[in-house]
Structures are given as structure tokens and as C-alpha cells.
Amino acid sequence: MDNPILDIRDLHVWYRTYGGYAKVLDGVNLFVHKGEKVGLVGEAGCGKTTTMRSVLRILPESQVHTPRGQILYHGQDILQMNQRELHHVRTGGVSMIFQEPAAALNPVFTVGTQITDVIKYSGLSKQEKQKDNIKNLAMQAISEVYIADPERIMNSYPNQLSGGMKQRICIAMAIVTARELLIADEPGTALDVTIQDQVHKLLRGLVEKKGMSLIMITHSLGVAREMTDRIYVMYAGNIVEVAKSGDLFRKPRHPYTLGLLESVPKLTGGGMAEGIYGQIPDYLRPPGGCRFHPRCPRAIARCQEEKPNLADLGDGHQVACFQV
């Protein structure tokens, strides 16, 4: 296989807080190949969004400390880039869709202004940035996300649109100029299930059509199953299991993945599982060894002392657990 577009290596991200450093990311490894759709799954507060925001370096820089790790974008470390290079990545390489479409759009500018701004600051040539062309590109992007009457939408403000429409506009902004990688941070979570289904289908169709890579952040295993080729399961700042989507659901191995899968209410019925005991640890004082051991039903003495590394089970299936 060719080199990955994005390769995150041993990433540690800490937040400065009043009580000390909150050690959120604890060695994340993740890579994405060209045209690949990757899912990042985990509960709220396990560091999914932190990981992806550090890729674009949009975390508040004064509060963030990165003691170790690399984020290689085509072999170049994003964490070491200067503003100019970073600008290049943000405007021409990677785009992101956020969870809350209402918060991602600026309420005081029209949708049209916001989309054309994306084109104006992109890496297109002067010629391509002529007024007519910009407008055409924007209209085209809006019709690509299946919104009828792009002309009217261009002149409306975000509060005149419904939640599903706003999210479509956010997708349009993310694909209006050519990008290699799209990071979608729970794009359907704030929407109703039928609208979510529409938005996900649209997103998948566009990513496939344009040959982009996708990183899909979600807390829902079902969404990850429908949207992605390969899934990373994350717990408390660690990747605990990686597998092809089909394999992960057929033979999950990590106790956390098993617990999550059991907790999902099934359409087949059969009552509810017990859930996973306990909650996400306090990042100011994370547990030693495997961070999952206080909640793990299969924990042994070794889990408290030593951190398990990802071990390969073949065919790209990796698990970080001593008991597997």
C-alpha cells in the first residue's frame, strides 16, 4: 500500500488546568490512506475530538501542551509547521465538519458569504478566483448537497435554515474546494434519525465521488459500521482496538469494545445489557497501567502496573489488552 495521507504517531496532548495537567491523550496512533474511510469511536470525553482538533491545530494553543508525538501529513509534521505551511494544510488539504451546525456557522453573515470566503482563502489561482467563478463554485457545492434553489439559500442567514440544511451547508463548505481529507466530527448527532440518515448517505456519496479520505468521529457504533472501512476504538486517550469494520463487529476482542457493543440496544430485542461499570477517569490523575482497568471485568494485577501496547492479531486487527 502507498504511504498514508495522515499518520498520527504516539500523540500525547495535555490541557493546562487549575489543578495541573489533564493528561487527555496518552499515545494515540492512527493513520489514514488515500480514499479510505476511517471511524474513530468512543464515549464522550475519551479524546476523539481532541485528537482530530490537534490535526488542524485548532485547540486553544495557550492551554495545550504536546509533550510527545507527531502528526505527519504527507510525511511533514503538522506540529512543527509554521503559520504559512499550516495555512496551506487548512485551506487546501484537510477540512472539518463539526458536530453542532448551528454553532459552526456565523449567524451574522449569509450562507453565501461564508461559502465564498472559503473559496477566496483557498489555494486556487487568481484566475479561478474571479467573482463569477467563485459564485458558480459555491452554487455548485450547494446543489451537490441536494439543496434545491441554491440562489435563495446563498442569500439566507443560517437561522433561516433547519438543522439538517445547516449541516448540509457545512458539508458544502467542506467540499467546495478540493481536499484530500475530510474530518467529520459527529455530523449527525445533533439531528433526528431520518435526517441523520440522509446526511450520512450524502457525506458518504460525496467522499466516494471525490475520492477523498474520511475520518468519521462518532460515539455510535452503528454509524461507524455503516460509514467506514476501518474503525479505531478509543478509550480515555488510548486506541484500544483497531479493525476492519466487518471484523470489529464479528469478533470484537477488547473488553471495552465488547462492553460497548453489548450496551447498544438491539432491534432484535432481548432486553438490556448491564452496561460498563464506572465512568471515564479523571484526567488529572489517570489510573496507572491500562487506563481501562478500574472498569474492566477481566482486569488482572498486571493491568494496574503496565500499559498494554497494541498487539497485532493479523489482517490489521490490533488490540491493546494483556488478556487477548
Binding site: G259, L260, E262, S263, P265, M272, E274, G275, Q279
Partner: peptide
């Protein structure tokens, strides 16, 4: 809430 916590609360409610 997250699914693991949801499962716990639903069980308790039942």
C-alpha cells in the same frame, strides 16, 4: 448519555 451509562440507567429504571 453514552450507551454504557444508558444501559445502566435503563436497567435501574426497569
Amino acid at each position: 448519555l453514552d450507551v454504557s451509562i444508558q444501559a445502566k440507567i435503563i436497567n435501574m429504571l426497569l
